[in-house]
Design a protein around this nucleic acid. Structure first.
Lengths: 208, 208
DNA sequence: TTGTAAGCGTTATCAT
DNA sequence: ATGATAACGCTTACAA
């Protein structure tokens, strides 16, 4: 049997689609009795509005996409939980895209998200290609970058002052009397790593 | 400026929407020259087909929903990676819903996924309410349960033989000569825990 | 207070 | 080998 639509509800309740829509969204006054007939009908046939049809007319999907390297990574895991908590309250869904720091997947997922017409994208970008990729669609899908930056990145960014943080850490160690201080600065491809390293270098020079 | 649609492409390429659609989906033969004009036009205006419009007519969203307690949990994390790897290859997207073992969120997310018209749901269910909740929509959205079962659960299920596994573990310990064997069987609300416990109990009796 | 109908961007069915 | 046009299931002016 086909899924029931707003039309079925309207027919059963003896009203127009418009009215059904309006009681569903509280978007204009409807007499109690009428409203009740609608609600009743909805229950009766187990009607659930289609977000895809809805999105087509409203031009918004109530979904935002997140592009990260790896959701099972503790750092991003925490971020995801935070995002989800807020978004759920706002009636938004979350589509998570794991890129494994791979440029190919990054491009692939970006494209996917844009086709999905997500209302926005939050990305911890690996590649600089975003610069190119986004330019064209920027006007339509807002993008917020987080954690990492890259040459030519512009617009909203949320992150940590890695340089200052690294400096603080080193200063602390120095104050405690340590002389030989090492730093694990793995992937220099990532801006976070470069910044942290940068924050320590001057200090070690000064110290030498 | 408004986002470009298939109509814009058609107009620029000097063909009908139908033709554009067909070159996009390789769904019927199109002369090389024509096809090229279409491809060209697409590049020119940076057109990206709307999956939401597409979904409305095809009646499929190429998206599947996963309901789990916590994606940052190692076990589910691994599962997600596996799912994602496969689904991406098949052109499917993944919407992850964290319930934190909460019945309320479970119901909330289930409803959300159904409204989103996901093509299918994979769930590690906490509550028994799924039984009730699903009954009505079963015909429309296929659900596969994983990891946990519950009373009245029917249809596809993928999981582990917890009872046998627990038995094996205990047998192994016994064979190694251990006498006092304990088991961490925390949430007895979860079928997995109950099953594991069940697998050991007979043995310890037998042993006694 | 409620109904009518146009429109959203695709695909699919007939035509040509 | 391609084009016209009716769906798809909603929202939203505009009428009544």
């Amino acid at each position: 049997m086909k899924r029931s639509t707003i039309n079925d509800v309207a027919k059963i309740a003896g009203v127009s689609k418009a009215t059904v829509s309006h009681v569903l969204n509280n978007t204009r006054f409807v007499e109690e009795p009428t409203k009740n007939r609608v609600l009743q009908a909805i229950q009766e046939i187990g009607y659930r509005p289609s977000n895809v049809a809805r999105s087509l007319t409203t031009n918004q999907t109530n979904t935002i996409g997140v592009v990260i390297s790896d959701a099972s990574n503790f750092f991003f895991g925490e971020i995801l939980r935070g995002l989800e908590d807020i978004l759920r309250q706002c009636g938004y869904g979350l589509v998570v895209c794991n890129t494994d720091e791979t440029l190919e997947r990054e491009a692939e997922y970006l494209d996917y998200l844009l086709r999905q017409r997500v209302d926005g994208i939050i990305a911890a970008a690996t590649s600089e290609r975003w610069d190119v990729l986004l330019r064209m669609d920027m006007q339509h899908t807002p993008v917020v970058f987080m954690d990492r930056t890259f040459e030519g990145q512009e617009g909203p960014f949320v992150g940590v002052d890695n340089k200052a943080a690294a400096r603080l850490a080193v200063e602390h160690l120095i104050k405690d009397g340590h002389k030989n201080i090492g730093i694990l600065a793995g992937l220099q491809r990532l801006s976070t790593m470069r910044e942290r390293l940068a924050g320590t270098i001057k200090l070690s020079r000064k110290q030498a």
